[in-house]
Design a protein around this nucleic acid. Structure first.
Lengths: 239, 239
DNA sequence: TACAATTGTGATGGGTTCTTAATCAAAAAG
DNA sequence: CTTTTTGATTAAGAACCCATCACAATTGTA
């Protein structure tokens, strides 16, 4: 059953692969549209509304990277799932300079594809529901502006690094919810990131030194022993 | 709590390779099981629970493709990582008719193997987690919030340690079901945990002291003599 | 390239939690 | 009723976890 009424657009010049994807995804109840070259893709994207774009990189006409950039100029929300044959291209995609949301390396399994599509749609839907507008967040004297990526504490502008900001924003958008270090790594660093979970400690530590009056008695970012961290709930902060 | 600490099954007839994999993956902290022919593999898969199958294609008895198909008839979630010597076989695997999740061509680097295993396990876990809704649980005056990992009794916030919380959550999610101490160790502590089942007593004891009015006459966590413990069923609690 | 800023890793100390063992109490078995 | 088995309780040491700092590696930028 499909909860998003707009179709998924498959941009893939190999008709066999395109067909394979179409069959599988339509089995899962998604509406689909196919196109086979980059220029056609751009035309369609400009004149129609899609719920997700499945985008091959190697394409006749405009290539996947260009299409990706084009989409982001018009629509910052539309989820893009890139398909790529070469692992070298992954860095480019994930460097995010093109603004893709996720990627799959060919050959990929159909199960994986459907899982990613499902996950992406769900994620975007969740974002659209909860943070429809990226409103400024207020917790007592702490103000967070997601759009400008700025944080003020008692009127003072804080200099947060990008990881620090990402962490703070995630926490602040889900007050009270406990996150494990691994979850934080998956969410902020990306699930393919391979590093030590205690790296999170360092970032939390640095973040606390910037936003907490007394880092030993944190007001905003609480430690959940044996689990990870959570942001204080509004009533804990407002005082 | 780690719910995916079931062992990885290595299905590989070359004992040297199998051993190499076993050593490397056990270094990374995974529980492992080995088997050396296809028929044995199917028997094991049917009667045990695994977190992942490492599957060679060329096997005595039933070959890897058949095993793959067999698994997919029984379990559509269980991740399968195929090992193959010939690049021609890749098309078959990724032609997707068999439902493998990923593959490695021999010879492969051990680093790559562990990376793929880790990635697959994480991905599947993420999908399984996002599938389940984490609703707040209510039992009379006892409220359990899985997401925030918070427990309230008559409006009072309780300070539970992480093991205590995991135990309570497991019980509360399956009211009435009796768990042996060993089951609890397997589920909460993980399949590979090697400790005394006695340890569970201590935790239940401390947990009861926190959530029960009278620990000698527990309302929520009942003792099942000669077996273990169970959570009270709703009608026992609501009073 | 070199420099600065940011991020990741390693090491340490202190505190919390967990595990174990010992003992006592209660239930089942003989 | 006595013995045996199983569960509850307590306390202490072990193991683990977190905060912190220093430094290394990486990244961004001039």
């Amino acid at each position: 059953m499909n909860t998003t009424e707009h179709p998924i657009l498959i941009v893939e010049d190999d008709e066999d692969i395109s067909e394979l994807i179409r069959i599988q995804l339509s089995d899962s109840g998604y509406a689909l549209e196919q196109c086979y070259d980059g220029n056609d893709a751009i035309k369609r994207i400009d004149s129609n509304t899609y719920s997700l774009i499945l985008l091959d990189i190697m394409l006749p006409g405009t290539d996947g990277f260009e299409i990706c950039k084009h989409i982001r100029q018009v629509d910052s929300q539309l989820p893009i799932l890139m398909l790529t044959a070469k692992s070298e291209e992954i860095d480019k995609i994930m460097g995010l300079e093109f603004g893709a949301d996720d990627y799959l390396t060919k050959p990929f399994s159909i199960r994986e594809l459907t899982a990613r599509v499902k996950a992406l749609l769900r994620r975007v839907q969740a974002i659209q529901q909860s943070d429809q507008v990226q409103e400024e967040l207020h917790f007592g004297e702490l103000h967070i502006n997601p759009e400008m990526r700025k944080v003020e504490l008692e009127g003072e502008l804080l200099q947060l690094t990008s990881k620090e900001f990402d962490l703070l924003l995630l926490f602040a958008q889900h007050p009270g919810r406990a996150y494990s270090r691994q979850e934080l790594l998956d969410i902020i660093w990306g699930y393919q990131y391979d590093g030590y979970s205690h790296t999170v400690n360092s970032h939390i530590n640095r973040l606390r030194n910037k936003i907490e009056k007394d880092a030993a008695e944190p007001t905003f970012i609480k430690t959940v022993w044996g689990v990870g961290y959570r942001f204080a709930e509004p009533n804990e902060v407002l005082s």
